[in-house]
């Protein structure tokens, strides 16, 4: 891929050298036979070593994108690379280095957790069979499932199933993990364990792509974010880049809200609102220090002043709409 078009769709991601990207796609599109465009010209750029939060409402095309990335489905148009290898041509070389969790766990119900992992490991002919037992035990340990390893999968709770799926992705060291809602169904304890685990993996250089709708999760562990909406990648960049895009508001705490509000209007701030002793307005291009100076100049008694940027959640809603309906 010579000239990836990363700049479209309002992404704030600067164009990077593709070799540094763990995942890159150009115009990746999937139109289903029904005519529905599930993924529309997506240009993903997941830097190597990043923890990339892949966000979007239900039905926004996240899972379809992941299926495209892994070669489970073929694109209608567009192309992508994993770890520098073109897909799907390079799948035999690159997929052993990629651990994946796609649309929830799936195992044979009448086999034990361990037997299920053994089957997955047996299917991988690029690993040493002699180390299978050690690797399976290590993977079970990492997700805290060793004690339940001999239980049939049928009797696993949703959280245990999720853990087993993560263990399946960790049967061998990976350079890239693509995890579709890995904490789905986990209790708070399990969620924290998984977050810690992903942190540990990322610290050793593994690139992690994390599809989720838990924004708190993203804020805690992700370095990069991509937001899907109606099949489009509507935003992509580092977490701070995305935060910087969101509109900042000046908030003034004062006993004289009317005078403060008037001063802010004069300065050219928009969307001025006051409630109690609190006046807030969209900062726009105005520098915060000028606001403070103007307030003092106008003899507004300032008890507190803050510049607040929208949280990830507000930004998410800004990008993907307020509606509760799933994307069709």
């Amino acid at each position: 891929m010579s000239s990836p078009a990363f700049a479209d769709h309002g992404t704030v991601q600067a164009v990077r050298d593709p070799a540094e990207l763990a995942i890159s796609s150009a115009g990746l599109t999937k139109r289903f036979r029904s005519g529905q465009v599930a993924v529309n010209a997506v240009d993903l750029a997941v830097p190597a070593g990043s923890v990339y939060g892949f966000l979007g409402p239900n039905g926004s095309g996240k899972t379809t994108t992941i299926r495209l990335l892994l070669g489970l489905i073929g694109p209608t148009s567009g192309s992508h690379e994993l770890l520098g290898e073109p897909m799907p041509g390079g799948s035999a070389r690159v997929l052993p280095r990629v651990g994946a969790l796609v649309e929830g766990p799936a195992f044979h119900p009448y086999l034990s957790g361990r037997a299920n992992l053994r089957r997955l490991d047996a299917a991988d002919r690029t690993v040493d069979p002699a180390t299978a037992r050690v690797r399976i035990d290590a993977a079970l340990d990492r997700v805290g499932l060793r004690a339940a390893a001999e239980k049939r999968y049928r009797h696993y709770s949703l959280g245990m199933r999720q853990r087993l799926a993560i263990a399946g992705a960790l049967l061998r060291p990976r350079d890239l993990l693509i995890l579709d809602e890995p904490t789905n169904g986990l209790d708070p304890q399990g969620t924290r364990e998984v977050r810690t685990l992903l942190g540990t993996l990322a610290a050793t250089g593994t690139t992690v792509v994390l599809s989720t709708h838990l924004l708190s999760e993203v804020e805690q562990i992700c370095t990069h974010v991509g937001v899907m909406h109606l099949g489009n990648l509507v935003a992509q960049g580092t977490l701070s880049e995305l935060r910087a895009r969101s509109a900042a508001r000046a908030e003034v705490e004062t006993p004289t809200p009317e005078r403060a509000a008037a001063t802010l209007r004069v300065l050219g701030l928009s969307d001025v609102s006051s409630a109690g002793g609190q006046v807030s307005a969209l900062l726009g291009d105005v520098e915060p220090e000028k606001v403070v100076a103007a307030l003092v100049h106008a003899d507004v008694p300032v008890r507190g002043f803050a510049v607040r940027r929208a949280g990830l959640e507000e930004m998410f809603v800004q990008l993907t709409g307020e509606g509760f309906d799933v994307s069709g």
């Binding site: 070593g49 690029t126 040493d128 061998r172």
Partner: peptide, 27 residues
Amino acid sequence: MSVADLRQSSDPARVPSGGPVGAVVYR
């Protein structure tokens, strides 16, 4: 991970490092 690491680990037989076990070369 650096560019060099990525290139190096594109050898299919090389088990990438980054984990405690299984990080042995296996053809």
